[in-house]
Write a protein that binds this DNA or RNA. Structure first.
Lengths: 110, 110
DNA sequence: CTTGACACCTAGTAGCACGAGGTATACGCT
DNA sequence: AGCGTATACCTCGTGCTACTAGGTGTCAAG
């Protein structure tokens, strides 16, 4: 596993993109998203729960996600998040913004 | 000019890298650094003065930069910043971290 | 029946980018 | 001489957010 990034807020402003992207493949619940992100980034992005849950809440409040409680095993309930069309659009925008950001950065720190 | 990034703090945690990199070419004063960054990023990173000056101060306090007042024209004084060896090393570390960050991100949001 | 993984949530804190303001010098224009 | 603009510095306050550190409860395995 590569070195983690989560120390300090280098992620500031990019967590949303990470979460939206994780949901593009299909609906998922918070804890699963958290794991998806960790796995997809090979352990580099090890988001704290205290980061993910509030972030999901914010995204939902902005209409980019919507959620519903789903019964898992027994009495167990999970809040499952789904990308809304608005969220899909925002994901596209943020990916583009990310590209521009990286490009500019590469030149500026070259 | 491409769209600016400065709205929202997407830069969080990367401003230091931007400043250190700008100083690698040689000593410069705050205002010049600000312009260098803007030009090198083709206007994408248009850092506010309220961002740059405190950041430079922090970097100096961490021993990554040192500064001295230099006479410009007439009575005019400028605080010129210089990369210390420690700063140079930190620049290297941050560039590496940045690469890892970008790589992980590309995969995670692909 | 306790341990640990799963699953959710909520304060509270720290840190930073930014906006808005303030001061002052130099220079070009009229 | 007067004025606007660019240069050059600084500082306070605000807002946002990632993270820490807790808390609750469910489920499966030993």
């Amino acid at each position: 596993m590569r070195s983690k990034v989560s120390a300090g807020d280098v992620l500031k402003g990019h967590v949303d993109l990470l979460l939206l992207a994780a949901l593009e493949a299909g609906p998922a619940h918070g804890y699963a998203i958290l794991e998806t992100v960790r796995e997809r980034s090979e352990g580099v992005f090890d988001l704290a729960e205290g980061t993910v849950y509030p972030a999901l809440y914010r995204l939902e409040r902005r209409g980019l996600l919507d959620s519903s409680w789903v019964e898992a095993t027994g009495t167990r309930k999970r809040r499952v998040y789904r990308l809304t069309p608005k969220g899909q659009a925002e994901l596209g925008r943020q990916r583009t913004a990310w590209d521009g950001y990286v490009t500019a950065m590469q030149v500026a720190i070259a």
